[in-house]
Design a protein around this nucleic acid. Structure first.
Lengths: 204, 204
DNA sequence: AGTCTAATCTTGACAGCGTCAACATAACAT
DNA sequence: ATGTTATGTTGACGCTGTCAAGATTAGACT
């Protein structure tokens, strides 16, 4: 038997994927604080405890959603960094705009990916860690390269520099998605200021 | 009748203050996600709906706690900035260490003060706004002064610069308190890097 | 083909949550 | 002394996550 979604069979056929899809939609629509397993099950048309056969608990579901978010973001970041016709500085510019743009466009997903719901209570799945950790590791590697190119200060320790530059993007992203910077209309200008502060002009 | 706390009277005497105190303690102990009105009432020794005579709902209680947090932080910040024997750069250094130190020492309070629980759903009390808004306004004013002194770049728009520099402190603070930077042992080094990146050396 | 097992889905139940309504008590103003 | 108002209580409702027990079916093995 194929995946007979939407048929009136007792077994759903592809419940795990359907749950992930619906949960991702609901997350974007109503925010993480309004995402409940019961409403999710209802939306998919299944009983309230059915999801427990595919996810150990709510946390595992959230981790699985976040995992997809990281994959999506990595894809976007890679495509920016792969542009060979751009100068290093321009690539960094676009990376910054891309990072904060991703957060602004997917605020609830960003909150889930980098929020305390998952990381504070050490609740991250191994599988999520495997996808998420390279994200920061890569930031360190790139920072080292940018330092070697003279794009960023060589006076600072690479790890600290990476932490501070990532921290800056993260901080601006959070101020936006948490409603503290209520006005989204100056995002680009903030990104430009950020780049100006961290990145030197270099000849290539 | 005086405030007869802990007596076996029907009326508590000073319930509002007791609730705030106990709630602040519980917040620090168990985190905002485990702070419930029922447990709070229980701790104070009062029935579950008694708090509703002093706070319209849970949100109002949270705002009142956050208000105290802002007052506490303002006091700490003012005492740093008032030190007249220090150079401007040194004052900025201490301000940064103080900001991130406050977050690291009071993670749950910081989460409450600058987190989405209050700001995202536009749930802030007017009274809280009155205490919180000057906090950022002051950051802008100081940034302008630092620019005029040559401590910070004059090329950048003051507002954007203030947003980015505050964003950086906020970002590092959040990465720490949300458990993403699990290791608190390099906070000072991150602060130093931050200062080095944003602040020029100047003669005074 | 038939049978057994394991995966999947269901209903019932429980404790915890915020909050409303109705009622009890006591403080205070007249 | 009395009536109003502030403050406290219990009961109830709907929401949540999750466990236990039972129903249904898919898939593997004879």
């Amino acid at each position: 038997m194929k995946k007979n979604v939407n048929k009136n069979t007792y077994h759903h056929g592809d419940l795990r994927a359907s749950l992930l899809q619906a949960a991702t939609d609901m997350l974007a629509e109503t925010g993480i604080e309004n995402l409940s397993l019961r409403k999710l099950a209802d939306r998919v048309g299944v009983s309230r405890t059915a999801p427990y056969h595919h996810f150990k608990d709510k946390n595992e579901l959230l981790c699985a959603i976040a995992e997809e978010g990281f994959r999506h973001w990595h894809q976007q970041a890679d495509s920016i960094l792969a542009q060979q016709e751009l100068s290093a500085r321009e690539k960094y510019r676009q990376f910054v705009h891309g990072y904060i743009g991703y957060a602004a466009d997917n605020p609830e997903m960003y909150e889930l990916m980098f929020g305390r719901a998952i990381w504070k209570q050490a609740a991250a799945t191994q599988s999520l860690k495997d996808v998420a950790y390279p994200s920061f590791q890569n930031q360190v590697t790139m920072t080292r390269k940018w330092q070697e190119m003279g794009l960023m200060s060589k006076d600072e320790d690479t790890l600290r520099l990476a932490q501070v530059t990532w921290g800056t993007m993260h901080g601006i992203a959070r101020l936006l998605i948490d409603g503290i910077y209520a006005d989204n209309s100056h995002i680009d200008e903030m990104c430009e200021t950020l780049v100006n502060l961290f990145v030197n002009e270099v000849d290539e």
